[in-house]
Design a protein around this nucleic acid. Structure first.
Lengths: 181, 181
DNA sequence: AAAATTTTTGAGCGACGCTCAAATTTCTCT
DNA sequence: AGAGAAATTTGAGCGTCGCTCAAAAATTTT
């Protein structure tokens, strides 16, 4: 239901009808919709992880090219799973409620894909520094995908978005790898 | 109310009580909450525009430095106006309803700040190309701010986030300006 | 087959955005 | 000033939402 109509299109009553049980029975499976959404997010993250792993392993490539591939794979996954991917970031917990640890650690796992090529590219950097760079790079690409796929601004055709992402990642890595200046 | 409790904390009944009128009277001022949120967003965008203008004009600087200043000003504005700034991007119109033109063009205006220094930096690029680069750069910085200020992932201290943003913008511009490779 | 336990049910609760006939206020004209 | 017209304000109420919980139904145990 999230995949079809977005987070806002998920209604417990519709859900109960679809799985063939009473409204109240939904809460035998799940404490509340927050948990439901987190569980769906977990599945989405797993599929995203697989997509990124696939991009990583597709033929030998320089660390730079690998990172570009990963970025584009991220973009493609978001485009192909638009509502599910959005649900990962749009969802806000009820005020005061805390995101469970397992949901957080799942997100952290994603950086692993970026971390390895980065480590190859910057052998002198500490793990901490690499972690920071990895998050920065991920965040930057994420922002491009997020705003690029938003129809609020002018819609960007997907191939154009891919090119922009590739160009930005390439330039950023180039700028990072050149220390003299 | 949005500034204090976020988009989800905005209730028409509370609003009516606060401004001292009946529940229904809210709809004499505004067609629905969507319009209300867009109007608040308009104010936020105007203040953001002023903040970026301030960063631009603060002393002579190279285009690179200017762009870094703007990026950091964006980060600071988001941090200081967290909920209002989030409302700009979290809000989704009711399904099928279209964002009015004035709201879209307001957002486009923001790129103006980035466009000018970029044009100075890349005199050979066409206006179209510059527009694309401007949006890419904005999106990347936006992503860093958005994920950096999210407490869902590990909270990043603001000064550290500023440094990461400055480093990324610097590296990206450096990579973009070096064509030979 | 009776009793104990577990599971399912759906009416119902409070809160939400929003509507609209009626009440009230404000304006207009002699 | 006062009567009639026009505009504004009111708040009960509608449909929908997530969620609850006593009662009904199904299942397991004895």
């Amino acid at each position: 239901m999230i995949a079809e109509k977005g987070l806002a299109g998920l209604k417990t009553r519709d859900l109960a009808r679809e799985i063939g049980c009473a409204n109240g029975a939904v809460y035998n499976l799940v404490a509340d919709v927050d948990e439901l959404i987190l569980r769906v997010g977990s599945r989405t993250l797993r599929r995203l992880d697989e997509a990124l792993t696939g991009a990583e392993g597709a033929g030998a490539a320089s660390p730079q090219e690998t990172l570009i591939r990963i970025a584009i794979a991220y973009c493609d996954f978001a485009a192909e799973n638009l509502e599910l991917w959005r649900a990962l970031f749009e969802h806000r917990m009820e005020r005061g409620k805390i995101v469970p640890d397992w949901a957080i650690s799942e997100q952290m796992e994603l950086f692993r894909h970026i971390y390895r090529p980065l480590a190859a590219l910057f052998p002198d950097r500490s793990p901490d520094e690499l972690g920071i760079t990895a998050r920065s790079l991920f965040s930057a690409v994420h922002g491009m995908v997020a705003l690029g796929l938003e129809q609020k601004l002018v819609a960007v055709p997907l191939p154009a978005l891919r090119n922009e992402i590739a160009a930005l990642v390439r330039a950023t890595l180039l700028g990072l790898v050149v220390p003299a200046r």
